[in-house]
Simulated assay, not measured.
Amino acid sequence: MTKGFAVACRLSKMAQEVAADIGRAQNNRTALSAVPQGQFKSILNNGLNPAEWRAQHRSGHPPGSEADPELRAFILDRIDSQTYDQIVSAVRASFPAERRVSRSSIGRWWQRFNHATAQPSTA
């Protein structure tokens, strides 16, 4: 057997393996195209843009002022007339320890609340 003939045999075997791979890929493609086209539409297309989707799936837990409607109303009643420190003192005087919030959490919540309720400019 010559060296050229051995190379030709290896190439022929590789070509057969590639042809078999192509045949399997075509069979898989045919099987996948048989799946109804709208079957996954409701799962993948939920009507939300990516920013809204991410906003609804933030890590961590909601701030106490967001999860507690009474505390939220209490803070909103005072936010325009008192400083954050005064609001924290009023919360400490009016609510039990497990419902208290910090000065920084009030500031972060207020920034998000203002951003969420801001009216778009008409300019």
Rank of each mutant, 00 (worst) to 15 (best):
M1L: 09
M1V: 07
M1H: 12
T2P: 03
T2I: 09
F5I: 11
F5R: 15
A8K: 08
C9K: 10
R10Y: 12
K13W: 02
K13E: 04
E17N: 12
E17W: 07
V18L: 09
V18F: 04
V18K: 12
A19D: 15
A20V: 08
A20L: 11
A20G: 06
D21V: 13
G23W: 09
Q26R: 03
Q26N: 07
N27E: 10
N27Q: 15
N27I: 02
N27A: 12
N28Q: 11
R29T: 11
A31G: 08
S33H: 14
S33A: 14
A34V: 10
V35K: 11
V35P: 03
V35S: 07
V35C: 10
Q37V: 11
G38K: 14
G38C: 14
Q39T: 13
K41A: 08
K41W: 07
K41T: 07
I43N: 08
I43T: 11
N45G: 08
N45M: 10
N46T: 13
N46Y: 11
G47Q: 09
G47Y: 04
A51R: 15
A51I: 05
E52C: 04
E52M: 05
W53D: 10
W53T: 04
A55M: 12
Q56F: 05
R58P: 02
S59R: 13
S59I: 03
S59F: 02
G60D: 15
H61L: 10
H61T: 07
P62T: 02
G64E: 01
S65G: 08
S65R: 00
E66P: 01
E66N: 03
E66L: 02
A67R: 15
D68K: 01
D68C: 00
D68F: 00
P69W: 01
P69D: 02
E70I: 13
E70N: 09
L71Q: 13
L71F: 05
A73P: 04
F74C: 07
R78L: 02
I79T: 09
S81Q: 09
S81P: 09
S81D: 04
Q82M: 15
Q82E: 15
T83I: 05
T83Y: 01
T83Q: 05
Y84C: 07
Y84V: 09
Y84T: 06
D85W: 13
Q86K: 15
I87S: 02
I87W: 02
V88E: 15
V88F: 06
V88A: 06
V88W: 04
S89V: 03
S89P: 03
A90T: 03
A90N: 04
A90M: 02
A90R: 01
V91P: 02
V91F: 01
V91I: 10
V91T: 02
A93K: 09
S94W: 03
S94C: 05
S94T: 07
F95V: 10
F95L: 14
A97Y: 12
E98P: 02
E98G: 03
R99V: 01
R99M: 04
R100C: 03
R100K: 08
V101Y: 00
R103L: 11
G107D: 01
R108H: 14
W109K: 08
W109S: 04
W109E: 05
W109H: 06
W110N: 08
W110Y: 15
Q111Y: 12
Q111S: 15
Q111F: 12
R112W: 00
F113Q: 05
N114Q: 14
H115E: 11
H115K: 07
A116H: 05
T117I: 06
T117K: 10
T117S: 11
T117F: 01
Q119E: 14
S121F: 10
A123L: 11
